[in-house]
Structures are given as structure tokens and as C-alpha cells.
Design a protein around this nucleic acid. Structure first.
Lengths: 203, 203
DNA sequence: CCGCTACTGGACTGTCAAGTCCAGTAGCGG
DNA sequence: CCGCTACTGGACTTGACAGTCCAGTAGCGG
């Protein structure tokens, strides 16, 4: 079992390796990503790779954790405002805008790894599932706050609504990725908003 | 360019190869699938593989087309009844039931291939996108029939509703795959049904 | 029945890739 | 300043794999 680095220099090297690996995985896919390519991008030798990671699977596991943090971290500010209808709309607009910037490329990094590795590595799959759980928790917290402040009807099943919203988002992302068309995500998220809208309090 | 077989024997061999390849891809992922494994399962030698396919990418393209046909063909009977609320509910029950049989494993074969190959092979991505298009067309046809027979309100935006429904389904599948929990698909499809339900005619 | 072509068998080559091993050094604590 | 350990460099081995090439044959049409 590769030990966690004990020095600042070691921690920085490990971090460089994980970030480089995440980049290679984004470009080549998890299976197609080679350790040589990772080493070249991280400016790290094979010994360093094997100093910090038991094997390629161990490195990919670290990439999965980093991917969760990157995807969720990138939405932190939007999650903070997810407690109002306007915040919800801004969140969906930002997601679609981001896909427009990407030209519909890339899809969801977490979902990609589930499809590439999830059927053959339960540890990695579990890490990625926890990423989805955290994502859903953010949506759930926002919807709960909207109920609390009276923007959604009391008794709204926020657990179910949060789950349905995340599903719409994930589905919109895979369809966008296949079609290279961010409007696919727009339509999916509009569906989620329309469903949430049916629970809005009349004003 | 490998030619299409001209004899019945050749067609059967090519078919065996594609089916064997689809099985290896399901087990090992597209990138991890080796031609040796495909040959072993299809009882076909390397010469036969290269007689019918230019290279591995060419074979994977054929697998993508076969995957579309398999996934959509498997729902043919349900699609035929997708023109009523009851048919919609049966369709969603069947999809969830199928995931329960699988124990939440596998995910959507089309989406898996998009995530595994779609960022690096535009031909394959386009084939898979056409699979999603056909799937959405079936849903669209059902919703349109429901409007025509008065089960959904006139003026219902069936294009958008079909797109949103497919997104919910795809999202539910990826979340089910990550969590190994068919209830994730159940919740997603309930969201789709609830949204469609808002367009039902009062009776 | 024979010639020809599509189909078939499988050995072989070159390249890539994961993982191992040997050796050197930066930097920290005593 | 020195010893020690975490960190570093990179050569090397082994095995897997895609693709090429040579040769044989089943089966069909004339």
C-alpha cells in the first residue's frame, strides 16, 4: 500500500500526478490513459508514480476522488444560491452556458468514469456514487430551503424531487455529449424546472 | 475498406463476430475489449476479423450499430403501446423491472459507449446519437398519439416532453449504475411521468 | 468435375504499456 | 556537519495486443 506523502514536497508531487492523470483521463479515457503520458505531463518518473500509488487502478481511484471535488467544487457558488427559484434558474443557465462553451463536448466527468470503469472496479464506482450523492445533497438542501421559506409548497417530497432533478441533469449531459448540442441539456433542465414549478406556491 | 459479405456463410460469420464483440465490450468495456477475446468467443481467426473489418475501430462501429438495434429492439413491444398513459406506465415499470433483474448493473449500453468512445471517435458518436434520436422518436410518437386521442392537452409541446423524458431515463440509468440501485431509475421515471401528468386532460 | 473466389487458420512482428528494480539525492533533524 | 529517509531518475523486463502476411479450403458456377 503506497503511503501518503509526509512532506510538503511529496504532497505537491502527488497532487501534480493526480491532476496530470485527470487531464490524461479526460483526453484519452481512463483505460486509454497511459502512465508514461501521466508521468510526462506531471514531470514525474515511474518511481514517483509507484511511490505514491500501488498501481494504475490506485491512481485512477485518486482521479475519481479528484473528479468529484472538481465537478462539485466548480458549482460551489451556484449551490450556495440554490435556495430560491431564481438561484435554481441561474444554476441551470450556468450549466447550459458551460456546455455551450465546451461545444457540447466532454459530458459529465463523473458519469464518464462510471461508464468507463464502474462495471469493473467497485471501489471506484463507490467513490463516484458518493460524488452523485453529494451533488444530490446540494440540490436537496436548496429545495428544502425553498420549502422552509415558503417558495415551495409544504409537504413537497424534496428527496424525490432532488433525485429527479439530478437525473434530468445527468441525462441532459449524456444526450448533449452524444449530439454535441447543449440544447439537449437545456430541454432536460427545463423539464426539471417545470416539474419543480408544479410545487411552487401561488403568489 | 472491408467489403460486406456476399455469401450467407460470410454474413453469418460477420454477425457472429459482431455479437461476440458486443459481449466482450459489455464485459470489458470498448477499449479493454481485445480482438483475441472476440475471436475466441466468435470462433473466428484474425484473418476473418480483418476480412470483414478494417481495424478494431471499424468493428467497434459495427458494435455501436448493433447496440442501437439491440437496445431499441428490446423495447419494440413497449414502444407499440406507448400511446396511452397506461402504456407509458407499463414502459417505465418494465425498464425498472429490467434494472432490478440486473441488480442495477450495466447501465445503458448506448450511453456507456458514448462515454467510452464518443470523445475520440466522431463516427461512432454519431451512430450512437442516432440511436438516441430513434429512442426519442418512439417516445415522441407515443406522446403525439396521446395528444391526438385527447389523453394529453392539445398544444402540448411533445418534442420537448419527449426530450425531457429520454433525459430522465438516461439520467436514471447512470445513477442506478453508479449506485446499483434501481430505485434511482424509479425516481427519475416518476419525475418524467409527473411532468407528463401535468399535461393530462382532466377526466 | 474443375477453376475461382470468398472465406478460413494461425504464425509472426513490432509496438506499447504496466510494473520492477537499482541507484542517486534533497532536505530535515539531531 | 552528518546520517537517514522520503523523494527522485530512469533502465529494464515481461506480456499483451493490433495488425500483417502466408497458405489452405469450402462451396458455387460454368
Amino acid at each position: 500500500m503506497a503511503l501518503r506523502p509526509t512532506t510538503e514536497r511529496g504532497r505537491q508531487t502527488r497532487q501534480r500526478i493526480v491532476e496530470a492523470a485527470a487531464g490524461v483521463v479526460a483526453d484519452k479515457g481512463a483505460v486509454g490513459a497511459s502512465l508514461d503520458e501521466v508521468g510526462a505531463r506531471a514531470t514525474a518518473s515511474r518511481s514517483q508514480l509507484y511511490h505514491y500509488f500501488d498501481d494504475k487502478a490506485d491512481l485512477l481511484r485518486a482521479v475519481a476522488e479528484a473528479t468529484n471535488d472538481t465537478v462539485l467544487g466548480g458549482q460551489r457558488d451556484l449551490f450556495a444560491e440554490l435556495d430560491s427559484w431564481d438561484g435554481l434558474v441561474r444554476w441551470t443557465d450556468a450549466l447550459v452556458g458551460f456546455q455551450e462553451q465546451l461545444g457540447g463536448r466532454g459530458g459529465c466527468p463523473i458519469a464518464n468514469l462510471v461508464a468507463q470503469l464502474g462495471e469493473r472496479d467497485d471501489d471506484i464506482r463507490t467513490v463516484l456514487a458518493s460524488g452523485f450523492d453529494r451533488w444530490e445533497d446540494h440540490i436537496n438542501a436548496g429545495l428544502t430551503a425553498m420549502v422552509t421559506r415558503g417558495e415551495l409548497l409544504p409537504g413537497t417530497d424534496v428527496d424525490w424531487l432532488a433525485a429527479s432533478t439530478l437525473a434530468s441533469l445527468q441525462g441532459g449531459l449524456i444526450l448533449t455529449q452524444a449530439r454535441r448540442d447543449p440544447q439537449a441539456l437545456r430541454r432536460a433542465l427545463d423539464g426539471a424546472l417545470a416539474l419543480i414549478g408544479t410545487y411552487r406556491r401561488a403568489s
